[in-house]
Amino acid sequence: MLKLDAVAAGYGTFQALFGTTLDVNAGEAVGVIGPNGAGKTTLMRVISGMIRPWSGAISMEGVDVLAEAPHRIIELGIAHVPENRRLFPRLTVEGNLRMGAFTPSARAKFAHRLEFVFDLFPRMKERRNQLAGTLSGGEQQMCAIGRALMSDPKLLLLDEPSAGLAPVVVQQVFELVQRIRSGGLTVLIVEQNVQQVLRVVDRAYLLEAGNIRASGASAELLASDTIKQAYLGV
């Protein structure tokens, strides 16, 4: 579904990704794990068009993503839940969700999608008229994911959904990811919470200093010594 081929990217003169190649198949949940500063967020931003790669190719279902203007990439079925959620704090929950369905094609399906998101997150329905900035951290994450789902995407990019949340809420967020993918959505998730994320995804890539160091099925990675030592602390 999504293919990245030797993508290099960075900011100014600083290079964050050194020829990253990865692919995500339809219906899969794929994780990208790695330490701080490995380039995980950059990877997400490159896919959703928020920054342009220096070189390499990205395609979504055979369509060249880089040929599209950034605001059109969402129309290819890629929805990005940015790091730190990035809600619109002074808009209501419903206002935020409305923004998720901003593109003309999504606007046509607005009522239908809203129902879908409210089914998935009944809490959001209760709080639809509350300002998003006044939600708790976990609710904000739900709202951010809901906003991304409003565009009826095929591929959901989740950037550190567990960041800054209490352990019990982290658990809920991962359960949610599980539910979303069982609904048939393809998910690419970036996480530092390695143990948790490897339970949810089918496969994962290990990204270190802008390079893919390892990849494989979750079970393999959970069992691998390097990962155990470096990330799981066992």
Binding site: H71, P82, R90, G95, M99, T103
Partner: peptide, 26 residues
């Protein structure tokens, strides 16, 4: 109009607005 929603989103967070498919510059 939708323009108002778009502009309110942009005034709060340009990156998030762009991620939602809003052509911020336009």
């Amino acid at each position: 109009s939708m323009m108002r929603y778009a502009m309110e989103a942009i005034s709060e967070d340009e990156d998030a607005a762009a991620a939602a498919g809003i052509n911020v510059t336009a």
